[in-house]
Design a binder for these strands. Structure first.
Lengths: 137, 137
DNA sequence: ATGACTGCAAAATATTTGCATATTC
DNA sequence: GAATATGCAAATATTTTGCAGTCAT
């Protein structure tokens, strides 16, 4: 918890109790949670927590590059601890988002174009291997 | 209009007046419109048109591969006539979505992985060249 | 102490659903 | 004529906003 606190201070973000808990949750849960999943999980231990605070906090975190925002499902935003550039796979059966470790030098090259590119996102949609296995039964 | 009608029949979609008009609009307007943009534009000439019908129709079209769904902005879904695989650039200043003609064989290779991949999406976020030019003034 | 953060309730926005009517082949 | 599509109104879900009170340094 002290480590997370310092990570926030380093970024110039005031390390409030709620923010530390939210960042802690995002570091432990790499399943790309929604705001509501973060809220529901933390509410048990932090009953005064408000959804508004979760919205505010993920907004602050993403503006400071601590986390990424995924727009992949189209119905809600999902959040992801910022690590090395990676892509995502959305299973249309179970709804899980799975990390894909693919390097794509062609996308990187686009940075030399006429527009100023700040973020690169890649994602795939299909059926994950677990759901494929279930289908066979 | 007859050509669009036949395109729908070919896909096994009943070519109703509303559907023809919506597909016609999407062919002419490659600016990746929202449902509301489609609705507002067509409402002038088709006053009985309902937003529900536009939602239904883009759903039918995307399921039949006539159009693509873009989740890039996170606040609403946007639609794009299906052409060759291409990627998108979202300008965070003006909100425009611009087509990027980049081929990325590395993303294609992911199809050989353990998950069944049906769609490949890539997008970039940044500041477009027009907004960059304006900033300099 | 002061400026930033939190949390509640209400609002705004986007999308979905139920159902009666209309349209297509 | 049967099946499908349309359109309205109401419901749902997500996210944003205004504001009063609280907390961190």
């Amino acid at each position: 918890m002290e480590k997370i606190k310092n990570a926030l201070i380093d970024k110039g973000i005031k390390p409030t109790y709620q923010r530390i808990k939210i960042l802690e949750y995002l570091e432990k849960n790499t399943n790309h949670p929604t705001v509501d999943m973060i809220y529901a999980a933390l509410y048990k231990n932090v009953p005064t927590l408000s959804r508004t605070t979760v919205y505010n906090t993920v907004d602050v975190f993403s503006k400071n590059g601590l986390i990424n925002v995924l727009t992949i499902t189209g119905s809600e935003l999902r959040y992801d601890i910022h690590t090395d550039q990676h892509h995502h796979f959305l299973c249309k059966k179970c709804g899980r988002i799975i990390d894909m470790n693919i390097k794509c030098p062609y996308l990187e090259k686009a940075k030399n174009g006429e527009h100023k590119i700040e973020e690169i996102h890649g994602y795939f949609i299909g059926v994950c291997k677990d759901c494929l296995a279930k289908e066979k039964n």
